[in-house]
């Protein structure tokens, strides 16, 4: 219970600071919108083309804008050495990790909730398939992205070129997650039944569990780097 209260306190602190400055969320939003606009110009938005490219465009927009947020989540803690201040408090260090994961997830969810409808408008594309299934895939994909992304952001924050290093180490590890997310999103747009993409959903769920458990074990060592 105390652990959860500490996690909630970290989330509160991060969200208050973020929604006061809108530093991360505005950068992520602008980037996400720009990616969608650029793809809207790059591809001729007609029926079959849109259907074929839209799952990829959506996930490219989500992950590229998400990287901007992840980069800031620990770099901001370097100002005034607040990360050291956090590490001095009587809290298990995994609470810091889970606090950051939840904050990053909320900020990404807000960005996605705004950029996804914009995508449908820009490509003049109505959502085919189940919205609930699409939300489930976006939830699992985003959770997997922020769980491993937050862990690696903590690792790269201690390096000099953290903003360059993070995408380089993160994207190769994201490949299974991206394949699963793009494939299942494509199947939803093709109005396939849930059983047909249930395998991809399981892959996303297993990925999420692994990358929530691994940092739980290793996060102490990452902060000591």
């Amino acid at each position: 219970m105390r652990f959860l209260a500490k996690v909630a306190n970290i989330v509160w602190k991060d969200l208050v600071a973020e929604f006061r400055t809108k530093e991360m969320i505005s950068a992520m939003m602008i980037f996400s919108v720009l990616v969608i606009v650029m793809f809207a110009f790059a591809f001729k938005p007609v029926g079959d083309t849109v259907k074929a490219v839209s799952p990829g465009i959506i996930w490219v927009a989500f992950t590229f804008s998400g990287i901007l947020g992840l980069n800031r989540s620990f770099v901001n803690e370097k100002q005034n050495e607040t990360l050291t201040g956090l590490m001095l408090t009587p809290v298990d260090r995994t609470a810091i990790y889970f606090g950051k994961v939840i904050t990053n997830f909320i900020i990404m969810a807000v960005t996605e909730a705004i950029s996804l409808p914009l995508f449908f408008i820009m490509f003049d594309y109505g959502v085919a398939g189940s919205i609930l299934h699409l939300i489930l895939i976006i939830f699992l994909g985003t959770l997997g992205f922020v769980s491993i992304g937050t862990f690696l952001a903590a690792l790269s924050a201690n390096t000099r070129a953290s903003e360059i290093l993070l995408p380089i180490i993160l994207f190769p590890i994201l490949i299974p997650l991206m394949i699963g997310a793009v494939q299942s999103t494509a199947m939803i747009f093709d109005q396939k039944a849930f059983v047909e993409f249930a395998g991809w959903v399981k892959l996303l769920a297993v990925y999420d569990i692994i990358f929530l458990v691994v940092p739980f074990i290793l996060f102490d060592y990452v902060l000591e780097v």
Partner: peptide
Amino acid sequence: SHNTFLYANL
């Protein structure tokens, strides 16, 4: 410490 450990935006 000489670092304040304070959050500038809070």
